[in-house]
Design a protein around this nucleic acid. Structure first.
Lengths: 217, 217
DNA sequence: CTTCCTTAGATTGCATACAACATCCAGAGG
DNA sequence: CCTCTGGATGTTGTATGCAATCTAAGGAAG
């Protein structure tokens, strides 16, 4: 288990997973004592985990009022995509410019293949997870050490919003093609190509989201 | 006092101020018990403050090894400026596009004037403080609610690096002119103008920093 | 003399007890 | 009937004690 020996990490990983897998829904209350008992820990590490999730943008903690799972409005989602459209093409371009290693390229290609297979099997949740790992790997490859921390707050959006469940087959195929093209652009060390494909990728995703508003009744 | 009733906020504000005013130098060790006694608090709120400062990028906490004031390398600074060059022009453009209120414009102009006076009096530390408030106000005016949190991690750089102390009179005057021009561009609701002035402003600052390496002996 | 192991000290991480604050409901007053 | 005040209850915020871990110094073996 990658869960470090610290109880605070255990709590952080567990809560993060539950939120991302939608086991806990946006707006749900997160009582410290309740979570502590459920996880078999004391309130102290749970508190620490909640604060970290707050700075990640996944939960909202209000003074003396406790924590709730973050709920994103339409304009929040728009803001998030604007920032991704700014930062991720930059990350892709930087990865292409500095030249990512062969091992990283192989990893990215492997994720693309795994995504194709998951799409073929119809496992959309798995697609979403792999997609997150793909974007994270690319951002790590950018070589800018501050970028990952900045983007964690906005990278969770596709998972929670269930983006891929709204894709029709054509859009889905295009999204997967974008992934492979980004890797090719990075491998070719062409920053402009990488940035422009990534921008297309994100704008297409944003378009799909805005045409299919929110799903909840 | 704007310090909220919570002890954790007191500790956070105090530590943040000490780091930004360079009362505590980069690399210095931050023992929890020591800080708790110095601030007249217990270790619990101090711990919380250190974790928040960690996610702000101002301190580094290592598991079981405690916290130190963050120390930035040359490449760290370069990365920070790359991100600012990406995000702050966007913020300025967005502020111009959405149209910031008359009150916010007055505040920005007031800060420009205060900076001019501080420059005339030679109070460079005060210039740095006002400069931070100026950029923060503009970012707040962008209307993107996620931008402030993202930029706090990189906005502290000028304060800690003592940017303005390295400016010659000509560069300083140009920097102040940039500020006023950004406000004019926002008031004119010209996004491209605002973005391009902001980019010039940041690139000039980055150039000054790279020509004058680090100062410490 | 160097290297490795052991052990003592100090510090962080966690659990628990207590204090402060917010929410909610009951009941008096208008 | 509505509004406002007061306490009861539960939650968050803080303090403190104990356990786990890291660092450093000292001694033994090579």
């Amino acid at each position: 288990m990658p869960t470090g020996g610290r109880a605070a990490d255990t709590a952080y990983d567990a809560l993060r997973r539950m939120i991302l897998e939608r086991e806990i829904l946006p707006g749900a209350r997160l009582g410290e004592a309740e979570l502590a008992q459920a996880l078999g820990l004391s309130r102290t590490p749970v508190r620490e985990a909640l604060q970290r999730l707050d700075s990640d943008g996944l939960v909202e903690v209000l003074p003396h009022r406790g924590a709730r799972v973050a709920r994103w409005s339409e304009s929040d989602i728009a803001e998030i995509f604007e920032l991704r459209c700014l930062l991720e093409p930059y990350a892709a371009a930087r990865a292409a410019r500095v030249g990512v290693g062969e091992a990283a390229l192989a990893k990215l290609r492997g994720l693309c293949e795994a995504m194709d297979e998951a799409v073929a099997r119809g496992e959309l949740a798995e697609v979403a997870r792999l997609n997150s790992r793909f974007h994270t790997a690319l951002i790590d490859g950018s070589g800018n050490g501050r970028l990952p921390a900045m983007l964690t707050s906005v990278m969770h959006a596709p998972l929670i919003l269930d983006t891929f469940r709204r894709y029709d087959p054509v859009t889905m195929a295009r999204s997967m093609a974008h992934h492979r093209e980004v890797v090719d652009a990075v491998a070719a060390r062409d920053p402009d190509w990488a940035a422009s494909v990534m921008l297309s990728h994100l704008r297409a995703a944003a378009a799909s989201l805005s045409t299919t508003p929110t799903e909840e009744p």
